[in-house]
């Protein structure tokens, strides 16, 4: 039997610490198995600048924190069949969303980071994407198909979910994950 076409996989890094991507890489030698089945078409790990069309599975790390990410997420959703939220930031908002409880949250964190604690040249940056007033998990913006909570989610869990999805099965999450 002819080997089937490779699955087009993308990973996206929004407002997160990249820990989830580290955990993804922690799949270690299983990545080699994975690479036989998938083609990585977009990722912080590869050098492709625009999100491609016709992606089968996209894994997203991080919460939606600014306008650029918001637009990217919407684009990803339109170009992806299966969207997976990876890690607590993508699933709940997590640490990224801690600022949500502040009044004028975007302004206050910018002030704190770039003015109050600056040693020199204190100013709020202007040439960067605008922060959203509230950082939010992916599914508050677009439809998400699968969730892998964890901070970060363990490599085994990521591998389990991917393996299930690649063999067109629905992963069962009960008892397998942990927030935090």
């Amino acid at each position: 039997m002819e080997t089937t076409k490779k699955i087009r996989l993308a990973t996206v890094w929004l407002s997160g610490c990249s820990g989830c991507h580290m955990s993804f890489l922690d799949q270690d030698e299983r990545l080699i198995e994975l690479a036989k089945k998938v083609q990585l078409v977009y990722s912080p790990l590869v050098d492709i600048k625009t999100f491609p069309e016709d992606v089968d599975i996209t894994i997203i790390e991080g919460a939606v924190g600014n306008e650029e990410q918001l637009n990217l997420l919407k684009q990803v959703r339109m170009r992806t069949k299966v969207l997976v939220a990876l890690g607590d930031c993508a699933v709940t908002g997590n640490v990224t969303a801690l600022r949500n409880a502040l009044n004028n949250s975007a302004k206050s964190v910018l002030e704190r980071a770039y003015v109050e604690t600056a040693d020199m040249n204190s100013q709020i940056p202007i040439d960067v994407p605008k922060l959203l007033e509230q950082a939010c998990p992916l599914h508050e913006i677009v439809k998400v198909d699968y969730y892998i909570p964890g901070c970060p989610p363990p490599a085994d869990l990521i591998n389990y979910v991917l393996t299930e999805l690649l063999s067109r099965k629905t992963p069962s999450m009960e008892g397998r994950f942990k927030y935090g």
Binding site: A85, V91, T92, P137, H139, V144, Y147, I148, P149, S172, M173, E174, G175, R176, F177, K178, Y179
Partner: peptide, 10 residues
Amino acid sequence: ATELGTDHVR
């Protein structure tokens, strides 16, 4: 949440 499989909050 783990036990019941509440993997996201609607």
